[in-house]
Nucleic acid binder design. Sequence first.
RNA 1: GGCGACGUAGCCAAGAGGCCAAAGGCGAGGGUCUGCAAAAUCCUUAUUCAUGGGUUCAAAUCCCAUCGUCGCCUCCA
Length: 454
Amino acid sequence: MKIYNTLSGQKEEFVPLNPNVVKMYVCGPTVYNLIHVGNARPAVVFDAFRRYLEYRGYSVIYVQNFTDVDDKIIKVANIEGVDPKVIGDRYVAGYFKDACELGIQPATCHPRTTNFIEQIKEFILELEKKHFAYQRGSDVYFDVSAFPSYGTLSHRNPSDMRSGARVEINENKDDPLDFVLWKGSKAGEPKWKSPWGDGRPGWHIECSSMSKTLLGDAFDIHAGGNDLIFPHHEDERAQTEALTSKKWVNYWMHNGMISVKDEKMSKSIGNIFTVREALKIYGKNAIRMYLLSKHYRSPIEFSSDRMEEAKTAYSRIARVMEEIEKKVGKDFRITEDEFVKDQKAKMIEVLDDDFNTPQALSIIFDLVKDVISTGNLERMKSVKVLVDEWNYFLGFDFEPDRKNVDDFIELELKLRNDARMRKDYAQSDEIRKKLEELGIEIMDLPEGTRWRWK
RNA sequence: GGCGACGUAGCCAAGAGGCCAAAGGCGAGGGUCUGCAAAAUCCUUAUUCAUGGGUUCAAAUCCCAUCGUCGCCUCCA
């Protein structure tokens, strides 16, 4: 299997540290808001990739964090006049709801910054001991000049960045590139006691500390949006490798950004579309089709046309799956013949090449087309088995969409009540009997007719 | 200003030296089916890969230049 590694800038053969187990860390959301479609991309794509690794026989330990100590959370908390913890808890819950509806499987671990304060402090103390950190007031900074390979991940060199006009000058720092490990607290901010005074962790330190605690000093894959490469991941890498003197992460995977009208979708720009809205309007399957039909590293445009297109494309597969089930049922076995073996090999070949999901989907569309035009029942069975198997990592629902079933039953009840009004009881009983066979129970109550699933 | 990515049919999107006169999806046009409508299905839809040079027996794929778009350099997935 080959993975594009941001660190080397090329595709590399994937060799996990342990031949059977893959350890993977994905940067999760800062919980101050409902997640938007841009946030959903890494969540969906890397979850699908993780499941593909499982499909390929690896056990995967998958960690995705929540950043629940942050300026933006504090700001929202202050506006609402509540404790930041309330905000964090609310949006952690919000994330789980959305992720679940998107068909994202829970990670092995979902650590939160607030549960790692002790480990973070120890981490910083160690850095101080090794002279990679210095204190200014009650702030602690990482000394970039002490870490010679700073810039390797993001392919920049420190002197270029220093001369760049956009690096903010902070009189506290020895070097504009130095970044904060621990922030002294200001009034109205959450704080924890520390050797440097009351304060809270800086942004980058949490991922280092959590991953070190949960996955060890070295692990296989670190993933996230490509807007995190610099400074977030560069800084994480610097502090962690400074501490351990070991290679921290072997493969860095970064997804491309989602844009709206040629501009990045981002909370600060304000052009966001929440996952919750998108789920309501387009549904889980359309969103997954949209995200998987372009390679994860490429930028992708969000628009309602794109979403409608994805929805139509998805239903093409779903309809055929439904049709196959009608023709050959659910209970059958197939023998793994040449055809099935070839298709599986083809699927693995394209996905082993840096998780090329657009190609994977085209294999499925080809099969679907083939099955329709030949009408061969054995072939249908094979295709159904294959697609169901691959769906382990694609994560679509091929069950028929039953969201309008309520309206449909209401319509039946209306027809039945019209018959009752006409005293056509043969007709009304017929309808009740049919509904009952479908598992729907009818009760004629004084206030009207109600129904429920038996 | 620095660093990086990208530019393939009406639109979306694979392909990364010969299997490409370029997958797949959406859309569009035509046929079949049909009381009407819809659905479904079949067929058609890029001699060409931003532009201009170059390397090579061979380039959408490699190199150089130009134009254009986007991302990062500040919070960001």
